[in-house]
């Protein structure tokens, strides 16, 4: 099994507060890695370091190495925009572009990057992948904001898939959704992992068990434990992990 992403000695700061402390993780290709941990433990910061979104926040910086297929993503030679096309991201809250139609939302990544493609094919494929096609095929030209919250989040996933990334980062993609919409997203993740490498942040431990192959447990900016999901939830090595996954703290 090859590692798609290799993270070594990763540290990250917000001004003077250290948000990540010496993180070492490998993400296997075509597998789902779940990041769990209490609020404020650095889960989001970690995934945002993988596609260099962290450094966009005022006062934020990071240090260490992140290799994508062996290539240093923090190298000066690599344009962050190029990296972000290979490492896509879905956010906690659906952030569709309110001025664009459903169609243009999906195609925005291609159109704004001036990538010529068979747009109709991409549109239908990504909307089918996200199980939206049947729900929106008759109103592709209407505003994306008319969709329900769950539909908007799936539209955001379709938008991220349209640029054909290799890795998909998901920062609590279902935390604002109801159980039915959540189930649809989870189903989708299961289908996507045959073609993408997925890193998903989640608050929901049941969700991590359901969808992930590997899990990493973060606390206070440190990586406490990582391993196969089943192993980590049933026979954790550290007491802290056991306390968290059994609900004794956090």
């Amino acid at each position: 099994m090859t590692a798609k992403l290799q993270v070594s000695s990763l540290n990250a700061w917000f001004s003077t507060t250290q948000a990540l402390k010496n993180i070492n993780v490998e993400v296997a290709a075509n597998r789902v890695l779940a990041i769990i941990g209490p609020s404020g433990c650095g889960k989001s910061t970690f995934v945002r370091c993988l596609n260099r979104m962290h450094e966009l926040l005022p006062g934020a910086r990071s240090e260490g190495r992140v290799l994508l297929d062996g290539e240093d993503v923090y190298s000066k030679a690599l344009d962050p925009s190029t990296l972000r096309r290979r490492v896509g991201m879905v956010f906690q809250r659906a952030n569709v572009f309110p001025t664009l139609s459903i169609r243009d939302n999906v195609l925005s990544g291609l159109k704004l990057n001036r990538v010529k493609k068979n747009y109709q094919e991409v549109l239908e494929r990504t909307l089918r992948q996200t199980a939206l096609w049947d729900e929106v095929k008759d109103r592709l030209s209407s505003d994306a904001t008319q969709l329900s919250g769950g539909q908007q989040q799936r539209l955001c996933i379709a938008r991220a898939l349209a640029v054909e990334p290799e890795v998909l980062l998901m920062d609590e993609p279902a935390s604002a959704l109801d159980p039915i919409a959540t189930a649809k997203i989870e189903e989708l993740i299961d289908e996507l992992k045959s073609r993408y490498t997925i890193v998903i942040v989640t608050h929901n431990m049941q969700q991590a068990i359901r969808i992930s192959d590997f899990t990493a447990f973060f606390c206070m900016g440190e990586l406490i434990e990582q391993g196969a999901t089943k192993q980590l939830f049933t026979k954790p090595e550290k007491q802290q992990t056991e306390d968290y996954v059994t609900g004794k703290f956090g």
Binding site: N51, M53, L56, S81, T82, L83, R84, R85, R86, G88, M89, F91, R93, N95, V96, F97, P98, S108, G109, L112, N113, C156, R159, A160, V163
Partner: peptide, 13 residues
């Protein structure tokens, strides 16, 4: 909203 900027930047724009 800042989230729209992030959405676009995350698409590699």
């Amino acid at each position: 909203p800042h989230t729209l900027r992030e959405a676009s930047l995350a698409l590699g724009v």
